[in-house]
Design a binder for these strands. Structure first.
Lengths: 277, 277
DNA sequence: GCAGGCGATACCCCGGCGGTATCGTCGAGG
DNA sequence: CCTCGACGATACCGCCGGGGTATCGCCTGC
């Protein structure tokens, strides 16, 4: 199977429409139809159910969609990692913009002091973008946060485990409390802010929609919202905001993750530095 | 990058010889040279250092060899898993021949009794062959043994943790001991049998070379060797052999492993059954 | 200095990929 | 019930590129 065939199939499987898929691939529809038919013949499996009104995936098609995406990602990872394998091309570390700044600063400082350290480019990415970046070779190593990020398929080392805290306006009645429960927070007059999910859309419910941290903190400062965040954000809270521990919120584990079998000395050094923090 | 190019490069990188690689690929040498040169041009990276007497890998070439093998494995896994995604094609479970028979028997029995169970084909493979089988889609799920097998890149659940025992001839003086240390065992008159490593060759040292379990146990019965094995082998020891716990040998953990993101209901059921044992 | 081995180059041919034109079929709407 | 339109399949064509053979250039070892 060639990656070209995989890309064609993934496009059709995602669009469920040969014409649109062909447009997305920058080609005409007939060769695409033929390529998919040929792929099915070679595999000996029907991947798509065609009606004259559209297309739907068979079970085997679903498998190939999932596995094919992974395979394409692996090929593209190989390509990118090879391109970046020149004479000490440096490391790319992917992390959330919202991640603990002190942890990151300490890690980068300590690593830079190591003998044989290479330049580290920090890639600040959006929610849950680190996993894909690591998988497809855009990043060499990432800081992930359990239970939010998916670490399956990576090697990881745990760095920190934190409780979560509610962020509320300074002076709000909740700031008098030593600790809270999620139920108490939900029962307060402050609605929980809502984040976009992976696809960029908001699940319905009360509470304002926010896109980034600054927006969120601004809204909380105005007394229009609240949220629950890892304890480490307390270090950088601006004036007008306070944090109250939430006892029954899930612990957040920060891990450093890297692709398995990564034999690069630089990655190994960085991980060793991180675990020794 | 097309998988064809990857296969070509991997062949050359493994043979370090264009002519042999071309023969292995069933093609002539000039198109292969050209394809590699084209790949290097497209990647903008030199992969091979050519002298008129041979070929050697550059650092980038080493990266592409490792990553390319993984990418090819991913593509082949996608292909095999798709082929096997017909109407309930059954599961393939990979395990060592030497693995605990009771555990396996109990697992298969319990799973077969589950509603919606599919046929399970047990694939007995050699030392450390389960990992590759799982990676390239020849198996859907595997029983692995830590610390011997490499589980990086898989999802796993721990099933059992066992101590290890020394296998000695019945009546040998060591059988009077309630427990041993590795040092004591090494200091006895019984030499440790030697297993082939991954490449099939034996590391030098004293002690007889063995290829399989039957051969090993036979030698031990004759008083010519000893070895250290997981505790569960006691259940199947033939007459003339005895087992003595070795207190400082590493614990052996049996895990069930499967490819990450495996959404198959059958795999999920089997894993659930296994963890409930 | 010469022969042999190895990779690169030159040149050719054909298969297959991608393009355009068109067909067959099914569903919606009047 | 018929027509129109949307969609995928088929037919046919042209050309690019992958693969073949022949040969070169270069280094090495005898």
């Amino acid at each position: 199977m060639e990656t070209r065939e995989l890309r064609y199939f993934v496009a059709v499987a995602e669009e469920l429409h040969f014409g649109r898929a062909a447009r997305r691939l920058g080609m005409a529809q007939p060769p695409l139809s033929r390529a998919i038919a040929q792929l099915e013949r070679r595999l000996g499996v029907t991947l798509l159910d065609r009606t004259s009104r559209g297309v739907s995936l068979t079970a085997a098609g679903g498998v190939l969609l999932r596995e094919g995406r992974a395979a394409i990602a692996a090929v593209e990872a190989a390509e990118r990692r090879t391109r970046r394998a020149g004479p000490e091309h440096g490391l790319v570390l992917a992390t959330k913009a919202a991640a603990s700044a002190e942890l990151l600063a300490k890690l980068l400082d300590r690593y830079a002091a190591e003998p044989g350290a290479v330049p580290v480019q920090v890639e600040l990415c959006g929610i849950a973008e680190q996993g894909p970046m690591l998988r497809d070779g855009r990043a060499d190593v990432a800081l992930l946060h359990l239970p939010f990020d998916d670490v399956s398929g990576f090697d990881t080392e745990t760095l920190t485990v934190e409780i979560q805290v509610a962020i509320v306006p300074a002076g709000h009645e909740l700031t008098t409390r030593a600790e809270l429960t999620l139920a108490e927070l939900a029962g307060s007059d402050l609605p929980m802010a809502r984040w976009p999910d992976g696809a960029g859309s908001y699940r319905p419910g009360p509470g304002p929609e926010v896109r980034d941290h600054a927006q969120l903190l601004q809204l909380i400062g105005l007394g229009r919202a609240t949220t629950v965040l890892p304890d480490s954000v307390r270090q950088n809270l601006r004036e007008g905001l306070a944090a109250v521990p939430v006892v029954d919120a899930q612990r957040v584990t920060t891990v450093i993750a890297w692709p398995p079998h990564s034999r690069s000395r630089a990655v190994a050094d960085l991980v060793r530095t991180a675990t020794a923090l």
